[in-house]
Amino acid sequence: MTSYMINNLVLSLAIFSIGIIGFLVKRNAIAILMAIELMLNAANLAFVTFAYSFASVDGTILVLFVITVATAEAAVGLAIFIRIYRSRGTIDVDKMTTLHG
């Protein structure tokens, strides 16, 4: 494993961890969605790194798919947030505890 790979993977893991922390500490749904995007992009970075080391295009293609998935998720997510905002006037996830137990 060459040094550039290690650097990239460490960066990727760092971004992934930042994403996890963001998911756990943010209260605004949009911020949480952004944290998830961070995690997905960290995975993308890992894909590209591995693809480069294998000198194959598979990993790069995978990245395209992941980006598509992330976009679709964002679209659905924003639609849900708007719906929630209309009915409750907030997208603070702390307020969403009607369902519990």
Binding site: G19, F23, I32, L33, M39, G77, I80, F81, R83, M96
Partner: peptide
Amino acid sequence: SEAALKYFLLGAFSTAF
């Protein structure tokens, strides 16, 4: 809507993993 929000956010979180 609340169920959708929870399902979506947690689902996306797990998908990242």
